[in-house]
């Protein structure tokens, strides 16, 4: 087992909901990053979780910035630190809306310029901070306040979009696998250039499951194969252990869906679509991992 530092950078006074995956993820991100770190946070749940001025629950500097601006702000910050000869890690910590929707232009620009930073998208598959409206990252069939009948479009494949920028490092992670996340953040920060980690964040109030089930829901996402843990380094794909196991013997997707109120009454057509999307993604990643494509 990897030794996880005892130091806490997220203090016990957050305004997070019970069972919040975002603060759980951030806890391990910061343990891996250490104190010489600045977080750049666009509008998202973490804007609220860190507390109300003049208090802050975070023990590293946090620069809150406008919704669409995180990656660009981090670009300027990273360049200024490097110009001053400082190695300070610049980490964007953004939700899915701020990443796949309104922030995608700045994200693309920063990666194209090979900005030396780590971009972490914690993905609860909707605009959680404003009460669960659909985002580009909401999966098909999921009910949100703006898709009361279930979303009719597929989840945007942000990983493929980011991969097209040839980042130094790209990985997926999940709130239910903190050791794996810790290792990936450490690896990302050891590399120069633009790094991206996409973390699934099962959200109790948003997905409508009880707050002690966050970790369980994350495990089901991985075990059912709807969320695949992998890394992409200099073009080479490695599928991580839990997902390798899931590819051999997955748990039924229905086990994952049935525990969430957002999928209540989901049509068979939407379930089939989710399954086929998951299968295709798995096949493609397996081929890439085997060096076939």
């Amino acid at each position: 087992m990897t030794e996880i530092p005892k130091e806490e950078y997220i203090l016990k006074c957050t305004s997070a909901c019970a069972g919040c995956p975002s603060s759980l993820i951030l806890r391990y991100v910061l343990k891996a990053a250490g104190p010489d770190t600045v977080l750049v946070v666009p509008a998202c749940c973490t804007s609220v979780i860190q507390g109300i001025y003049p208090n802050t629950a975070l023990n590293v500097p946090v620069y809150n910035v406008a919704f669409a601006a995180a990656a660009a702000c981090a670009s300027g910050m990273s360049e200024a630190f490097r110009k001053a000869g400082k190695k300070t890690s610049v980490i964007v910590y953004a939700g899915d809306g701020g990443t796949v929707d309104i922030g995608i232009q700045a994200l693309s620009g920063a990666f194209e310029r090979e900005t030396d930073f780590l971009y972490i998208c914690y993905d609860n598959e909707a605009y959680g901070n404003t009460g669960m409206q659909r985002s580009g990252s909401t999966p098909v069939g999921a009910r949100t306040t703006t898709t009361p009948g279930g979303k009719t479009h597929a989840k945007k494949d942000i990983d493929a979009i980011v991969a097209a920028h040839n980042p130094s490092y790209l990985a997926t992670a999940c709130a239910a696998y903190p050791q794996d996340l810790f290792k990936k953040v450490g690896k990302a920060l050891s590399l120069r250039g633009s790094k991206f980690i996409h973390v699934l964040a099962p959200c109790p109030p948003g997905w409508r499951f009880s707050s002690e089930m966050t970790v369980e829901m994350g495990k089901l996402a991985v075990k059912s194969g709807i969320w695949i843990l992998y890394e992409r380094e200099s073009g080479k794909v490695t599928i991580n252990g839990p997902s390798k196991a899931a590819m051999i013997k997955p748990v039924p997707l229905e086990d994952y869906l049935s525990g969430q109120g957002r999928f209540k009454g989901i049509s068979q057509k939407a379930i089939d679509a989710l399954k086929s999307q998951a299968e295709q993604r798995a096949k493609h990643l397996q081929k890439e991992a085997e060096g076939i494509c």
């Binding site: 620069y63 910035v65 660009a72 200024a80 630190f81 001053a84 700045a106 693309s108």
Partner: peptide, 20 residues
């Protein structure tokens, strides 16, 4: 920094400026 938009130009200036 040859940014991809003016929104990002000012955002990058902000990120740099706050470091001093």
């Amino acid at each position: 920094i040859p940014v991809e938009s003016e929104h990002s130009a000012m955002a990058a200036c902000i990120g740099a400026s706050i470091t001093g």
